[in-house]
Design a protein around this nucleic acid. Structure first.
Lengths: 107, 107
DNA sequence: TTACTATTTGGTAAAATAGTAAAATATAGT
DNA sequence: ACTATATTTTACTATTTTACCAAATAGTAA
């Protein structure tokens, strides 16, 4: 149960951070494995500075953590409960999109 | 697994919609019970038109649905998997805040 | 040291979002 | 039909976010 302002704001911050296609895409990739910034950059295709900024949003929301190894900085997921929710919302979204397609076909 | 742009955008939209304190507060209240707009308005304390706009964001993201009964419009949750994720992130946020407080005390 | 690679930071213009007041809609009761 | 209540929409302004470029930083290799 949400009670105080600070807790709500923190929780909203998590959602807000996830609420951008590039960030969500990166987070989704991190479910499988940690990745360095350059891999994430290649994945989303934004320019480096954008990726870096997106990552800092995710870091500040406590969704990912990072550590330097050699030349690279590796990011990994830091929010254990994300997995279930991501796969669940992903399923729902797929179904929604499918039913939209069906509605188009049946016209 | 997230694959195509549209699905990612849809899913991000869900997160984005949840990423605002007032909206999150309303959604949280809806976990317990459906509520009419006026109840939600009293809960968050924003003015009516803001509440209404926030609700339309939630509606368009498919997080809530609404139905008119009598004079009022009642909103209810439409995203089954939200429950687990909300309680989980809420716990995490609580722990984070607590540990911040502890760090302050130990200085 | 110098040069190189990976990443972050700062500045800025354009786009999106939030908040508020006023107007519009819809419905119920009289 | 008229009035009151509940909700949404519109119009406007202020604020935040985004995307991109250039510059700064940090670590590594030569």
């Amino acid at each position: 149960m949400l009670r105080n302002k600070q807790a709500i704001a923190e929780q909203a911050k998590i959602f807000k951070a996830l609420g951008h296609p590039s960030r969500l895409l990166m987070v989704d990739a991190l479910r499988e494995n940690e990745r360095c910034v350059c891999e994430l950059q290649a994945l989303v295709g934004d320019d480096m500075s954008s990726v870096s900024k997106h990552l800092s949003v995710l870091r500040e929301a406590g969704i990912v953590s990072s550590q330097k190894r050699g030349t690279n900085i590796y990011y990994q997921l830091a929010l254990p409960c994300l997995e279930t929710f991501l796969s669940c919302t992903s399923e729902i979204v797929k179904k929604r999109i499918l039913s939209q397609v069906e509605m188009l076909n049946n016209r």
